[in-house]
Design a binder for these strands. Structure first.
Lengths: 121, 121
DNA sequence: GCTTTACTCAACCAGTTAGTTGACTATAAT
DNA sequence: ATTATAGTCAACTAACTGGTTGAGTAAAGC
């Protein structure tokens, strides 16, 4: 089996966007925020309530997500209303999708096969 | 439109795995390594050649990928042979896929609509 | 046996990250 | 007008990151 040689061109900004997206999602608190926002728009205070950390800390996490373009923050009176944006997530999936062939990985499959043989099954 | 409320249970290890995967992929050099390995197995030296940094630096990047379970490193004589593993990538995609609804984002769509109106088109 | 190759390891450095606290600002409620 | 709420900002800390260099090790080649 021969894997297609795929040359991929990417601008510096596209690289930076992927950096920011993956980096933003590398923190469990931020992934929890994303998960929460998928259920609908919320304010910062509401968002922060379940977390065992200061409002400032959650605000900073939200800022990271906002800088990465994953969430929109809208100032409304004295509250900040946050909502999820899908585009950067899609871009991350698009990048990952290039390695889809490896999800049903021939090497993984081989490894599983060998593991089964080692176990004598 | 109502988004399904999805409660998601995740073990500490699954969380840590996602942390490691997204964190590993948040660096452009490491994504380039992954891309390179998708074209086939290579040694560390071969892998390091195109990069403008020391072998030690690339070795460290590879170690991060290895720790995250994204690559296997096999010692063979004095060379290290590296190959891609798909499973963690699949897990990352599975997580992201829960937000697939937002890729064709009603808010994004609204934002684009408003942007078009602002431009008077 | 000596030299080159392919690495690893430890120490160091500068910059970033994830959290804290305390002081502040602006809006809303009484 | 006062008070409570929602949040920001600046300063600080501890730990982590991404890179370096120099020394060391183990396998291959001559």
């Amino acid at each position: 089996m021969i894997v297609n040689q795929k040359v991929h061109f990417m601008t510096v900004q596209q690289m930076a966007q992927l950096d920011a997206t993956f980096s933003a999602l590398s923190d469990g608190t931020r992934r929890a925020i994303v998960a929460r926002l998928a259920d609908g728009e919320t304010t910062l205070s509401d968002l922060a309530a379940p977390f065992d950390m200061s409002l400032t800390a959650v605000s900073k996490h939200l800022r990271v997500l906002s800088d990465a373009g994953l969430v929109d923050i809208e100032k409304r009176g004295r509250t900040r209303h946050c909502r999820l944006r899908g585009t950067p997530i899609k871009e991350a999936v698009d990048w990952l999708s290039k390695y889809e062939a490896f999800w049903i990985d021939r090497f993984d499959a081989l490894a599983r096969h060998l593991a089964r043989e080692e176990n004598g099954t």
